[in-house]
Design a protein around this nucleic acid. Structure first.
Lengths: 207, 207, 207, 207
DNA sequence: CATGAATGAGGTTTCATTCAT
DNA sequence: CATGAATGAAACCTCATTCAT
């Protein structure tokens, strides 16, 4: 339910109650249980939606990628990930929490399979981008899945990192800039031959 | 308390009860409240210990760094972070959850200040490493604090990412290798002049 | 709930537990919280019922008072108050404790307003009785609200006083007699012209 | 302890903890139990102090009462009671709550006896005032103990009543005026022959 | 005499879940 | 399909009291 998203976004997994969600959805608590086996499953379903969106974006990149330049490939990846973030920041963060937590253990097998599949799919799509780059001799000869894992890690790391700074230090959100610099560094780090123009489009003021 | 760590590590923040912890510590529930204002504060105190350990490790690097080579600098950073992970993997993961969550809002001001301080201190120590590298003309002319943020993000991202794969796909833990590759890429990405031997100490098949 | 009244009456505000009440009401503890925000609010709701009963009795007096004699007026008041006492002695005493206690500060605004309103209403109804008596030249020219406050004080004072003697000295309850004498004295004290027959229907030695 | 008084005054019987009191007294919780069997007993001891003060004041009246006039007698009583109130308003109110509550049942026999004795003593001293007035033909031929009970009831009723108004309606404290009017009415009500000058020293603005 | 750390029973309250309608 | 009142287990937390020092 789109309404559940609002509630989880606002209160977080633990503080949100089934009644809150039911109220927001203009349903009764009992009705929620007709559609979702339990609270965790409801929450996870939402995580799946964002994973699905991520997959769609990633596949769109591989399809429309006549443009061969490594930098553009990485740039496209970055844009996709940033869009996923903007699609629903709080749910994305919640999903990063979901990964690696006790919640995962309560899921129904089907749901867990679903998540597995989407996760692997997104990794593989990403990996294909790097594989092509490697074949073309543009990227270093590293295992493409490893590289895919690393960009994903960078993405989630930066998102959580910025969120953490936002809460702890009351800073504003520099996600876009930090993500930009991180991907730039990453891109340069995996290119085989140094870029022609050495610069570092200074990501001004970013922390 | 060392006992609380065990319980939180095993059950996670939400599933662990104060009674569990008390039992593990061979104390009564009431006694816990003599030392910690509430459950969140007990949990956060543990996070602080790991942040403190991180800081000690980082400072140790800056102090003993007669060795100037950029690659060594990054390598030392990586080693420190990996040690922090091994110091207590589950608590580290829990701490990444703590950052950016509703829990932070219930903390006593002192505790929150404590966390802020440790966070900032670790960032600044890291930033100094990069600042020196930049001055020496070895690293790209990027804001050192931004670079520090990025390594930290890479670190937490990789940790969570590996943890997530471990739970979802039942894979074993490739953290060390993934972290290795990630830092290598990062190091190469921020070096001003390309390394002499272009290689990529192949991170054997690791994902 | 009528069941809560029984428990509070028997054990008092502090010793009565929500579980006691739930058991008496043949409900589960959780269910109580569907209807009452917390323990204090449940308790106060009961106090309101007795205030409501008091108001009904007082209004009934003003309405059916064709009989003009001052002594009858006071007599009617006394009867009303005594009936309120008999309606539920322990809750009345509890209510006197509620007034002027820390409990009042935890109430929801609506409930507090409700209590305020009922309190003021009962005072005003009483005051009107005196106002008429004053207009007719039967009662002394004192502020009617002040007189109303005084009868109310006498009422609560006598109730608590008798209760206290009952507990401390194990005496039986002479409330009716003490109240009778008190009101007689009061009535004589506010009459403008002395009563014809000076007597004092001897309140047979009771204290 | 004079320190316990402060704590009970500020927080009330239930909200005040033994540790609060110990801290205020600059003692340890354990030490309190060397002097008082339990919390209730500590609380009651304080009530006793105010009862003792009341007794002293009452006895002083009977001793220095060469002045025979009934109005003066009552006036002296009123002054004594008002002084007791001012001696420590909150403890007096707490004591009125103590009377007629479950607390009384937990007291040690000695303490209970002590309270009984003081209570009865103060009643009897008061009763003697009225007895003399009756003998002299000034007061109506009512049982003196009954009259004593009534003044006591008026006193406690008015105190609680004013306190209640103060909390519920945020009015300021009109105790002195209300008490003044109440005693005036009472005094007139028990006099056998009407006072020469009929007036009612208007207790201006009193409610 | 005094301490104060430790207790642990017991209180209030929450909320995911169910089931009769 | 939907309801929503009721559940009741279990959580967090308090605090009067004790006892080894």
């Amino acid at each position: 339910m789109v309404a559940a998203k609002r509630v989880f976004s606002e209160k977080g997994l633990n503080k949100a109650t089934m009644e809150d969600i039911a109220k927001e959805a203009e349903l009764s608590p009992g009705t929620l249980y007709l559609y979702f086996k339990n609270k965790d499953e409801l929450f996870s379903s939402l995580s799946i939606r964002i994973l699905q969106y991520l997959n769609i974006r990633l596949e769109h990149i591989t399809n429309t990628e006549g443009e061969k330049k490594p930098r553009d490939r990485i740039e496209a990846l970055k844009e996709a990930m940033y869009d996923v973030y903007e699609f629903d920041p709080v749910m994305l963060i919640n999903m990063f929490h979901l990964q690696s937590s006790e919640t995962l253990k309560n899921l129904s097998p089907e749901l867990l399979d679903n998540i597995k599949e989407l996760s692997q799919s997104s990794i593989q799509t990403t990996a294909r981008l790097f594989a092509e780059g490697i074949e073309e001799g543009e990227f270093i000869d590293e295992h493409p899945v490893a590289l895919a894992g690393i960009v994903w890690a960078i993405f989630s790391g930066v998102v959580l990192w910025e969120e953490s700074k936002r809460i702890i230090n009351d800073e504003k959100n520099y996600l876009k800039q930090t993500l930009g610099t991180a991907f730039e560094v990453f891109e340069r780090g995996i290119r085989k031959t140094p870029a022609k123009k050495g610069g570092s489009r200074k990501a001004d003021g970013s922390t």
